[in-house]
Every structure is written in structure tokens, then in C-alpha cells.
């Protein structure tokens, strides 16, 4: 069975998004008329167009061999985890600590598994970000835990 999985999935997801946007707009916002468009007009039309495009992308993908893909699960989790921790912790932990922790999380995905290397990396990046943003650009952001 030949399938172009990326295109198939992409098309179906886009069609789904389009459909949702269109229905949500029709349901929640006034559509108006062509002469006097309401806030729902654009999203409703665009959502419809996206749904159609999604179908156009997905249909031929059903009968076509697609490229093999490899999803980088570990990298994905490490990178997104690092960002989420940084976002949640910046105000509470301060720039220095949160950078240290986030870099350690991000480094999980790195091929170099030595713990010493990770610590050196985290300290380097922390020093760099504190130097550039806190001292260099004087960004209004807490440096240490507190407030």
C-alpha cells in the first residue's frame, strides 16, 4: 500500500483546522455582507479555503509513495521542555538560575553525554545570557529568585 504519510497527515490536519476556524467564526462572530463585512467574514471564508486546500493536499497523497520521515522525539521534548521551563521560571527563579536549569534540560538531547560537559555548557550559557541581557542590554528582568 503506497501512502505519502506527511502529506496525508498535513492535509487532514489543515482541513481540520480550516473547518474548525470556519465553523467557529460562523458560530461566534457576525458574518455581515460583502458590502459591510463583519468580524466573522474573513475567518469564515479563509477557514473554508484552507479546508478545501487540505483535501486537495491529502487526496493524491493516498495513492503516492512519500518520503520516509524520522521524528526526533527526544530532541523535540528536550527543546520544548527547556523553553517551557524557562518561560515558567524566568519571573520566579530569576535569569541566572532559570538559564542554568533550562540549558541542562536542553542538553539532554545532545549527543555528548558527559555530565561534566553539560555543567560547563550550562555555566557558559548562563554567564553569556546574564552578561548580554542583564548587564549589557540592561533588560528589566530579575536576576535572582525573589519577587
Amino acid at each position: 500500500m503506497k501512502r505519502d504519510i506527511p502529506d496525508l497527515a498535513g492535509g487532514v490536519i489543515l482541513a481540520g483546522i480550516g473547518l474548525f476556524v470556519s465553523l467557529y467564526a460562523v458560530d461566534h462572530y457576525e458574518i455581515g455582507s460583502l458590502r459591510r463585512m463583519g468580524p466573522g467574514f474573513f475567518p469564515a471564508v479563509l477557514g473554508g479555503v484552507l479546508a478545501c486546500l487540505g483535501v486537495v493536499i491529502a487526496l493524491p497523497a493516498l495513492v503516492r509513495q512519500g518520503p520516509a520521515i524520522r521524528i526526533a522525539w527526544k530532541e523535540c521534548l528536550a527543546v520544548l521542555g527547556a523553553i517551557l521551563v524557562f518561560a515558567a521560571g524566568l519571573d520566579r527563579l530569576g535569569l541566572a538560575l532559570v538559564t542554568l536549569i533550562s540549558v541542562l534540560i536542553a542538553s539532554v538531547a545532545a549527543p555528548d553525554r558527559r555530565i561534566g560537559w553539560r555543567i560547563v555548557l550550562a555555566l557558559t550559557v548562563t554567564a553569556l545570557s546574564v552578561a548580554v541581557f542583564s548587564f549589557g542590554l540592561k533588560m528589566t528582568v530579575p536576576l535572582w529568585p525573589g519577587r
Partner: peptide, 27 residues
């Protein structure tokens, strides 16, 4: 690249934060 990417991530976060001081934007 393993030396670069953690720094890139932190800089991206802080860069986005610097636009309007919003943690929401980092999420």
C-alpha cells in the same frame, strides 16, 4: 552545534520576552 543550540534557545526566549515583557509569548 551541541555548543550552540542551548544558547540559541535561551536567546530566542529572551528576545521574544524583550518585545513586551511577556511570559505568555515564550510559552
Amino acid at each position: 552545534f551541541r555548543w550552540l543550540y542551548p544558547a540559541i534557545l535561551i536567546f530566542v526566549c529572551l528576545g521574544v520576552y524583550s518585545v513586551r515583557g511577556s511570559s505568555f509569548d515564550m510559552f
